[in-house]
Design a binder for these strands. Sequence first.
DNA 1: ACACCTCCATACGGTGGCGTATGTTCTTCC
DNA 2: GGAAGAACATACGCCACCGTATGGAGGTGT
Lengths: 200, 200
Amino acid sequence: MEMVERRTRKPTATRLTAGDWTAAALEAMARGGLAAVAVEPLAARLGATKGSFYWHFANRDALIEAALQRWETDHTDAVIALVEAEPDPLARLRTLIGTVIESTAIPGADAIELAMLATAGHPHVAAALARVTARRLAYTARLFEDLGLPPQEAGHRALVAVSAYLGHAQLAHATPGLVPGTPEQRRTYVDRLIGLVTGP
Amino acid sequence: MEMVERRTRKPTATRLTAGDWTAAALEAMARGGLAAVAVEPLAARLGATKGSFYWHFANRDALIEAALQRWETDHTDAVIALVEAEPDPLARLRTLIGTVIESTAIPGADAIELAMLATAGHPHVAAALARVTARRLAYTARLFEDLGLPPQEAGHRALVAVSAYLGHAQLAHATPGLVPGTPEQRRTYVDRLIGLVTGP
DNA sequence: ACACCTCCATACGGTGGCGTATGTTCTTCC
DNA sequence: GGAAGAACATACGCCACCGTATGGAGGTGT
């Protein structure tokens, strides 16, 4: 809600790059969804005008596409890299589930993801979402296979696990009170969830 | 973009009721989300004008509130009533999970629900969603308690089950190709899901 | 059959966002 | 240090939607 300071933002940064716009677009998307990725509000937030934007991008859709691509590459492999550091398959699965469930408790951590799910009707969003989800499912299924499960069984459990994460993210966002609130409650819940998806 | 035919729609239906507007609002919400619940498009779709709408409702928000309330009362107890017809707790759980997962395979069946999750930021939507979700969780937890599980354990499994449903609905909507496609695949998946959430 | 109330159409002003056209400043490079 | 181009500002027309104001068509009772 900054009031005046229009021309006194940063000592540098009089000029903007395309990356500044995509970053602002992702930030806006995290707060207000895809609808908040609007040229003029973004320009106001960046202390610029549309004239700048339409030099860097052809139109709003081009910005959305660029922002999604950036998110996809930046964010997708982060968790996988973290998980891959664990030694054995079971520890990797624990780390994976624990990390993603814990992320739902951090306000705004999954905001972009939820915004994308909320706008799955948009072509670019649907495409990005499909790629990321496919990779997640494949990776999770591979973890179950490493645990010794046959492919179909591993696929089913991966689907349950990913669904449980997505649903949990939804619940944590839409109805925070109905989800484990304290870190300990989350820990025991995560343990129980892991126990169920790795059950006999 | 209809050109003329303004007064030649249905033989009857010259006058509209508030219920007609809420029904149209829910239909629009199922197709295009909350943003599609717009007064003028709805009026055009109903063959009327805004003059009619603003006689029945104070503003757009009042329509949204009425539509949500109608959905909440109409749709909430439907599944529960169906499930409650089953004899024993395990059969109820099977029917519940089978029904809701199967509903994700029917195109547009969960559209309103997904639209609401997509717009959980809206106050009325958040409130309706919280009420419905709370009742679902409580009911599902009660099913697990009827299976002989202690309250906390039942609550955890209910959370897993509801999350798995919500996540599955998201996946089925956003990335239909990554979810069991044929009825048989769904059946075996549902069996496996039930087996996991009812596991030891 | 006439006044009345209900229900609706028409017309209007306002807002917020998109995209374009054109001028303006800053940079860079010779 | 001046021209060329890059990066931006300004101003405009356009569209979609919200909400209001006002008048006019229906029924309805008496």
